[in-house]
Design a protein around this nucleic acid. Structure first.
Lengths: 261, 261
DNA sequence: CTCTGAATCTCGTGT
DNA sequence: ACACGAGGTTCAGAG
């Protein structure tokens, strides 16, 4: 079912004076019509020049070429991040080995960055059609937490009610704007993991909201599934309340009564 | 040179009442002694339950299994990030297909998260030894910028001199502490790309440093190869100077004279 | 070990 | 196209 790698095009390459040259093979210039991956196991050296400079000494590795033009070089460890890569869109030019030089692949990115792969020995090379992917469905990210809190504002405080989600300000929307039992405004920043920059964000919003005489004084609540100690310290220092959330529990409880009427 | 996949161990699995059961094969429980990768092209469905919940409908994809125990599922696009994955350390249990059920791989992570891969058809399956990787050498990241600025403080201001790199404070080290031509202290935050959180970081340092009567008043400089407009606005608003850096130019100029004497 | 911050981050979304 | 924020971020280094 897997098919052998097919060369897409072939063109002569300008001969440099007094240098034995090889023919170059452009493997991909634009996304192909059909999804495919090419798998190569080879002893290779890699040199990247682009946003930074990086060098990989020769070793046996996996080279993964995708239909979108991306190339990545993996060894056996790291979760999924390659040792080296080139993001699409990019062009791969293959130069076969000659008597004097090893094979060389040059991957050129849109921004001019280059990944040069010098291939000493190939152990495996196969290309596989994949078909279109239906895509990933996710559940349980920050947006869901925000939704759930909007449905259950009383989780944050007895008698609190929702004014609106994504309450707009000049510097961006506040995740939730509530009213507490006394009618005072409460700005809520929702995070999956609460860190310092989230507290900073909420601080900026509070500063702005408190300039609005119709809202001031505005309380701040930092709500997250997990709050880092430094973030908690900073929040407390600024009079911001911290609430840790239980996603499963939130999902389980019935919608606040008041939204039913 | 590539060898066929070798099963590492085999154990009987407890039979559930009135359910036809299959034998399970534990592929990896711990890092193997030799680096290798396993490449599988298969029609598969993937369900992840862990820090979030995710589902991939059946389609033909690449499954990449590494020696460190990680498993990742790729389709033909995205730079290098898999559609779904499990980070090491984790355990892969293979259950072969039976008459009534398709093959199923269950990957269990350290935190209890699970990735369940239901395999309908396998088109390719090979395992390859890789050998130990010598590792990646990088050049041109933030640390280098900081080094270069430490060597060339006059790039930031005429007559400025270095007090020290990584100047310690209660909330962490300031990238650079300098003295300007008048002997006033200057705190410098160095970034490759300057964004709002970098300005916030520097602001916190300045607040702290300015409490020190030996240093106050301390000027702030935000130095980066690229500064986002919003970050620049915020910095200006707080009296922090912005400097954009040219890495190549910095690398080219000779070390500041004063460090030569 | 945990925690912190950088990253060739990647990837989505909104303007 | 660019800017901004989230991420199952990943990754490396320091305490």
């Amino acid at each position: 079912m897997s098919r052998k790698h097919q060369e897409r095009s072939r063109r002569p390459r300008r001969r440099r004076a007094s240098t034995p040259r090889r023919q170059a093979v452009i493997v991909r210039a634009r996304p192909a019509s059909l999804p495919w991956v090419r798998l190569v196991i080879a002893t290779c050296q890699v040199d990247y020049v682009g946003r930074l400079t990086a060098h990989l000494p020769p070793a046996k590795r996996l080279i993964l070429v995708k239909a979108d033009g991306s190339v990545s070089i993996h060894n056996d460890d790291r979760a999924y991040k390659p040792l080296n890569w080139m993001s699409p869109p990019c062009t791969l030019v293959e130069e076969p080995a000659t008597e004097s030089e090893p094979a060389r692949w040059t991957v050129t990115g849109k921004d001019g960055g280059q990944l040069v792969i010098t291939i000493e020995e190939i152990f495996h090379d196969s290309t596989h059609d994949l078909g279109v992917d239906p895509g990933l469905q996710k559940d349980g990210v920050e947006a869901h937490l925000q939704e759930l809190l909007a449905e259950h504002p009383s989780v944050l405080g007895e008698g609190w009610t929702l004014v609106r989600r994504e309450y707009p300000t000049a510097i961006g929307p506040v995740d939730l704007l509530l009213r507490d039992a006394n009618g005072a405004a409460v700005a809520v920043e929702v995070k999956r993991r609460g860190e310092i920059d989230g507290v900073e964000q909420l601080t900026r919003y509070l500063e702005l909201l408190n300039r609005d005489p119709l809202l001031a004084p505005v309380r701040g609540v930092f709500a997250a599934q997990e709050i880092k100690p430094q973030a908690r310290v900073l929040a407390n220092d600024r009079g911001i309340e911290c609430v840790t959330l239980d996603y499963d529990a939130l999902r389980g409880i019935p919608r606040d009564e008041m939204t039913l009427f």
